[in-house]
């Protein structure tokens, strides 16, 4: 079976994504399991690692790259991200503030 350079590169992209995802997930779980920091700091680390892992998945598994910026896919994804940030951020600010006022 012949292995072309292109095939090797594609395989390495997936292998790299898989490896990075396992390491990031492992660190996340380790921080919670061994209680390496105070609870709030641990949650901060977990969220930070989750964002990095999402970027890894997007890059290595979904093959989204900034080089294809001429494409409308990227604009669609960035716009959806904006909508999500607005909706989730807005909901949390409004409802948590209401909660605090009701106490």
């Amino acid at each position: 079976m012949n292995i072309s350079p292109s095939l090797r590169r594609d395989f390495l992209t997936y292998a790299l994504g898989y490896g990075l995802a396992i390491v990031l997930t492992g660190i996340s779980f380790a921080f919670v399991f061994y209680r390496l920091l105070v609870p709030q700091a641990v949650f901060g680390v977990v969220l930070f690692l989750a964002v990095i892992q999402i970027v890894v998945h997007m890059r290595c598994f979904l093959h989204i790259s900034l080089k294809q910026s001429a494409r409308s896919d990227l604009q669609l994804i960035l716009f959806s991200t904006l909508i999500i940030i607005l909706m989730v951020g807005g909901t949390l600010i409004v409802v948590l503030d209401q909660n605090a006022r009701m106490m």
Binding site: S80, I84, M87, V88, T91, L92, N99
Partner: peptide, 12 residues
């Protein structure tokens, strides 16, 4: 976007 809304509700 639908999952994001579910996450937002979950967090509240």
């Amino acid at each position: 976007v639908m999952f994001a809304c579910l996450f937002a509700v979950y967090a509240t």
